[in-house]
Amino acid sequence: MHMPSSAPGMPGAPHTSHEPVIAVRDLCFAYGDEPVLDHVDLTVERGEFLAVLGPNGGGKTTLLKLLLGLLTPRSGSVTLFDGAPKAALPRIGYVPQYSTARLDFPVTVLDVVLMGLAGTRRGLLGRHWSRDAASIDRAREALEQVGLSGMEKRMVGELSGGQRQRAVVARALMAQPELLLLDEPTASIDPQGSFCFFEFLGTLRGPHTLVVVSHDLSIATSTFSNVAFVNRTLVHSRGAGLTPEMLTMLYGHHEKTCPMGAFISSVSGLFPVLPRMDELPPVATTAPSGSLVSADATPSPAAPSPAAKDA
């Protein structure tokens, strides 16, 4: 199989080295007979901020679960830090979709953040973390880092959607992870809040490698270094920027008269500060056939994959 050629990071990108943190090779996955991911390749290097975009049911969350080792690929391989995903769990900070946690749960913000220390010791019995002064100080620092100082005594249900999301990021930071994986972090935040949240995520880049799964276009305002489009297949490009072609891949073809079509054709004017994709160096991408397609091989949008059915 081909290896994606590495391209130089964006000018001024912090701490990007060519050490691969994530290496996905020719990965296929299906739920039953329903193919979800088809011959996917992806390389993420240390210090990069990868935005994973795609429609609902396109396989974004499945890709994240494969990276965490919670699902096993049908074929192909997933390597994290040169090893199996399960072995890398202690080095990963995972921020699940907020809907997986219980809002009415009797737990303070401080205790939620302390849960981030879980997993350093295995086993059903016994203590996974200690609630000593050092751990509590560390939790306070994590809360300060996400802008929630002084909130540690609040109940988790009293926080706003954006604050809750920052609290679970603080929880992920407790284990001092090298890689942060976030699944739809803005799903429970209003649009204004999600701009702020993505901006905040940009500040974490550097010591952490970030992979953020989203179908929220406000991620376009954040300082991501690469984009991957997942809709059964995966198209990866280094450099920040959304083009009408990418949006077409995400949302399908629309007539110009359709509001979505009008939006797509106006998008390059919406985010004028970002470089257009076709100005960026070509990076290896994959198509269903597994052939090498360069990202600037437009105008015709990169093979719209068979519309994945909603999961």
């Binding site: 919670l70 997986t100 849960m115």
Partner: peptide, 10 residues
């Protein structure tokens, strides 16, 4: 509290 997170922490 959060089954998915617990799973990801092993």
């Amino acid at each position: 509290f959060d089954r998915e997170f617990a799973e990801a922490r092993g």
